[in-house]
């Protein structure tokens, strides 16, 4: 084994630095997509009419039971065929967002179901509007279990972004693969990618714990 520090600092790190930006961008946007998509899927799944809730449940199950990589490929090949041409990064973000929407939907559902039924009944008794019921009573109470779970999905999404290298998005894994192929030296680039993910996940886990404590303290006085 020979680790080349000059190669690391002059060639690998500058290119990895740019790629890290793409990775983080993809993570944040997919996470936002998953937050919104999950909410929509959850509302569809808990809809009163079984004609809405049953198909929504099946769709969630199907998305959850198939590999994200296959879904990325599917979107990547399907969208151009039906006339939608998007850059690979957008397609990938879309795929990761949809996949994690299905997972987040379950998180939201579990959070809302954890709110005691009496709370809903009390709101009806007090003649609160649906909006106020959600804003002032239900959502604040369902946040403590939801926040840490969503935080875990943020880290999970972050670790899923290397899959985008399969469709040639210039994120950190793709760049380390390219550097490896150009110079025929994989050691430095791939190891740095690994360290990057490890450090970022540990930092994220630490931040999530802080947010979790904050939510617990500020909502459940």
């Amino acid at each position: 084994m020979d680790w080349d520090w000059d190669f690391t600092f002059e060639t690998v790190l500058p290119r990895m630095w740019e790629a890290a930006g793409v990775t983080i961008w993809a993570t944040v946007i997919s996470f936002l997509l998953a937050l919104v998509g999950g909410l929509i899927l959850m509302l569809l799944k808990t809809h009163r009419s079984p004609w809405v809730s049953r198909p929504a449940t099946e769709v969630i199950e199907f998305i959850r039971a198939t590999p994200l990589l296959v879904q990325i490929f599917f979107l990547f090949f399907l969208l151009p065929e039906i006339g939608i041409t998007l850059p690979p990064l957008t397609t990938g973000i879309l795929a990761i967002g949809i996949y994690n929407s299905a997972l987040c939907a379950e998180v939201y559902r579990a959070g809302f179901q954890a709110v005691p039924k009496g709370q809903w009944e009390a709101c009806i008794a007090l003649n609160m509007s649906t909006y106020r019921t959600y804003r002032d009573v239900i959502i604040p109470q369902s946040l403590p279990p939801i926040v840490p779970a969503l935080g875990n999905y943020l880290v999970a999404i972050f670790k899923e972004t290397p899959l985008l290298s399969f469709v040639a998005v210039a994120e950190i894994m793709q760049i380390s693969k390219l550097i490896g192929a150009e110079y025929y030296r994989f050691t430095e680039a791939v190891t740095i990618a690994g360290i990057f993910f490890l450090v970022m996940s540990l930092v994220a886990a630490f931040l999530i714990r802080i947010v979790e404590n904050y939510v617990k303290r500020s909502i459940l006085h």
Binding site: T161, P162, S165, M173, S176, G180, A193, G194
Partner: peptide
């Protein structure tokens, strides 16, 4: 646990396949 949970599976896979040969 922390190392293998913290890194991405694809990175571990690449490391095994492309970097391990460097170590012989």
């Amino acid at each position: 646990v922390e190392v293998f949970r913290g890194t991405s599976l694809l990175v571990i896979l690449f490391w095994m396949f492309f970097v391990m040969p460097e170590f012989g």
